[in-house]
Write a protein that binds this DNA or RNA. Sequence first.
RNA 1: UCCCCGAUAGCUCAAUUGGCAGAGCGGGUGGCUGUUAACCACUAGGUUGUAGGUUCGAGUCCUACUCGGGGAGCCA
Length: 430
Amino acid sequence: MKWVTVDRISGYEGEVVQLKGWIANRRSSGKVRFLLVRDGHGTIQCVVGAHDVAPEAFELADKVPYESSIVVTGTVKRDPRSPVGFELAVSDLQLVSEAQPYPISKKDHGVGFLMDHRHLWLRSSRQAALMKIRAAVSKAARDYFDELGFTAVEAPILTPTACEGTTSLFQVGYFEGSAYLTQSGQLYGEAAAMALGTIYVFGPTFRAEKSKTRRHLTEFWMIEPEMAFWEFPETIDLAEGMICRIVRDVLERCAEPLRALERDVSTLEKVTAPFPRITYSEAIDILKERGLPIQWGDDLGGDEETVLSEAFDRPLFVTHYPAAIKAFYMKRDPNDPRLALAVDLLAPEGHGEIIGGGQREDSLEKLEETLALHGLDRGPLEWYLDLRRYGSVPHAGFGLGIERCVAWIAGIHHVRETIAFPRLMDRLYP
RNA sequence: UCCCCGAUAGCUCAAUUGGCAGAGCGGGUGGCUGUUAACCACUAGGUUGUAGGUUCGAGUCCUACUCGGGGAGCCA
């Protein structure tokens, strides 16, 4: 007996096949039972007629609780009433495991309840669609860099110190001492770029900040390219190319998940190069014109990002931030030392910053100065300073937050649904 | 850390001015040969988050706490 998955069912019209999955829904009419069977690749209606199966199988179709696991045997039939174009005329039905009463019903639930049942919530079509889009985003980003000849390098998750002194870190025991969970792979990425030229780090990142917003997780994933001998403008081009590639691949490969999420893809189809590029100073002017209370030197908050991104119809690069509000490793603008060669990408539709990056400081002396200015202990960073002692070169890179990118592309409000098991300030279960 | 909102059946919510705690879904029983969150009938299901207080009487008013949601700051 041929075991097939729902996504391939159209190739088996008229044939008898087996499906293995779970009961997503059950309806009935007289002596017909309709089972919606979900197998992870799709959902299809299986029709069980009282006279077409053994009495035990019909009894099972009548009673089988939601989310029980089953194996169904039947003939694949084209049917215009089916959302997938086909249904299964069942000849046999076998129970794998009977489910206890399933906590998630077809009606509405609150976010707290769903998050407590995240391990089951993932079975819903909406969550499955988000996981597929997330996987497509990750793959597109990797493919983009792989095809450009970048080498994938993993940065350590356990680190001896902060990468950027400002943010708080998770401390963990490390034998007799302690370690921290990484807040960025970037510094290690810089070391790898000096060895391999162009690299990218793709891994988890941890921030112990007590952030409670729709854009924050305590554990999230970043893809961080780092390029030796690259300077500022071509780094922005690279980020632009990566976003276009991600959006293109998701539109091509995730039509069904996007439809399931009722995503208006017309805004995604507009995501083509070139993206608008404005400087921080221009951004401040725009915000002042629109009446926001902001001064040159202030960082851009969520409200400011939303106003800026709504002024353009595609992702927006903001460049040349004041050095004072950026990390210690940012290179100063040679034309204006108040500024850093830093770039952020703001996603449209109010999703905020999804990329942050720029050119790195390559002068040992200047880096030492900035470290002192930020009050950072240079001891644990001596290895990083070595990169400037032994053949320092201009180099640049950026980091893309996967969850924010997925939230934007999928058109959903909160990043917590874009990762299978989100970690938030007050949520560590399941 | 700060601001706002909330907690009533397994879930989502209702309960008028402080006056008998209810509905839908889910569970159970039965019905229907094409259902699409199917539908129809019946049925079980409650220490109203916790601890105090006001009152003849508290789901409702007051205080504290706990938990959750939304937002700010910080950042991707």
